[in-house]
Design a protein around this nucleic acid. Structure first.
Lengths: 241, 241
DNA sequence: TATATAGTTCAACAATTGCTGTAATGAATA
DNA sequence: TATTCATTACAGCAATTGTTGAACTATATA
């Protein structure tokens, strides 16, 4: 069994588990479909059903998909990703050594080609607040984290793993008040993200900007309205085709 | 969120995932019900349904349980275990740091009170082949591993974790040919099981017995017919009540 | 502005689930 | 051996799923 197959199976189990245990399985299915950047139409095609089926699930008209449906759904998503080179599977693979609950990950993506940090920040209405001199450099992907959940559930070890998986990438923390915790956690990490974006901060802390400067990480604060728009804007940035 | 709650949620996700992705969800449900030592009648009671419902799933008359059913099923199993002190949850918790696929674990149990190794061996028709002088000592539980799967899927790190989680317990490897790999993997581990049972070995290797002697682990070979009987016999050993 | 593309909503209907209750089987034990 | 206890098997019924297909709403884009 190849390493990527192991990652694939673990990811499959996690997605299936998350759907089955969700209070709103349809919403969770949508989340995963969107993480895999598959349209309802394409998904329906591959499943051999009409698009309305997918919509009915996601909108909650069908509330409790059967095990068979969940299985087919998960397998198709993973197959589609494999056909496209397995980018999403491998992005998750990097996070797998330590068990990071998938529900803290709101989105994850590798770019088709590098994106300049200033372009990235612009896209999500983010103001740099430390290490602005790095704005010309590139990032190769991003991970959006539910900061509140992460604060509560992630161990130090898991944080380290998250940073290691984010080299040359952007880490976006939503749902946080000051941004202290992630920046304290990062202190002294060997491997770390190139760009950290905070979203939903109430007040920007001088301690936080100082830490970012010490670690030489470009820190930015996004003023985009809500998390939904944040995800949408980034999806449109540098698509595969 | 307490540590045991995190373990509980991870375990829930895994079980739910395993059921949904299984080719035979009913069979997987039965497996987990049995690991938690719950009868169909008790489970049905807690779920507020008739026992035939459980039977219909497990026998395959209902082939594809809905997400809601899976969720209720998993939650009830975990709740029942919590009411009994959470022994199974914590047994799995010890295995959680490294992601060990749950399907390599055929059964896992902590005893209500210590069991002498010779009594343990007798119950499963096992002949000691190394360190027989330890037969008077106690074990506090056991884990049955699908050896074939473990060989193929477990990393060295995961093996170490498995041994660490098995201190003062018995590790039973089924489905193996020589038993070399687990005993090589154990070499030099700080923490290790007290008793290793091999089941299904074709020929017993002098290298294997030597390794066991060096590590001072009682090694035994079980001649019980099949894995099913092995599981059954052990279930009857030193039950909770 | 026409024309894709993505998604929603819903009527309709067969198949299956989710459930009860009862009868039957089997195994363990007083 | 009679009596539990655990499980199976199944008839039967309401609710829901799984499915199609058509009509409809956005939102881009040529």
């Amino acid at each position: 069994m190849s390493i990527s197959n192991i990652v694939k199976e673990r990811l499959a189990r996690r997605i299936a588990g998350e759907i089955s245990l969700s209070n709103d399985p349809g919403k969770t299915m949508r989340k995963w479909r969107e993480i895999f950047h598959v349209s309802q139409v394409t998904l329906a095609e591959k499943l051999g059903v009409s698009p309305s089926v997918i919509s009915d699930y996601e909108s909650g008209r069908r509330k409790s998909p059967g095990a068979k449906t969940v299985k087919r759904f998960v397998n198709i998503l993973l197959t589609i990703d494999e056909e496209n080179g397995g980018q999403i599977i491998s992005a998750f693979g990097r996070l797998m050594g330590v068990e990071i609950p998938t529900d803290i990950i709101l989105d994850i993506r590798d770019f088709a080609s590098p994106v300049k940090m200033d372009h990235f920040c612009e896209a999500i209405n983010a103001q740099p607040v430390a290490c602005e001199e790095l704005l010309e450099q590139d990032v190769y992907g991003y991970t959006i984290i539910d900061g509140g959940l992460a604060m509560r559930e992630l161990s130090g070890e898991a944080f380290t793993k998250l940073f290691e998986a984010s080299v040359q990438r952007t880490l976006i923390f939503t749902n946080i008040s000051t941004g202290r915790l992630p920046l304290v956690a990062i202190r002294g990490s060997q491997e770390k993200p190139s760009l950290i974006v905070l979203h939903g901060v109430r007040k920007i802390d001088s301690m936080v900007t100082e830490l970012a400067r010490k670690e030489r990480i470009l820190l930015a604060v996004s003023f985009i309205e809500d998390i939904e728009s944040l995800i949408q804007k980034l999806r449109k940035l540098n698509p595969l085709t």
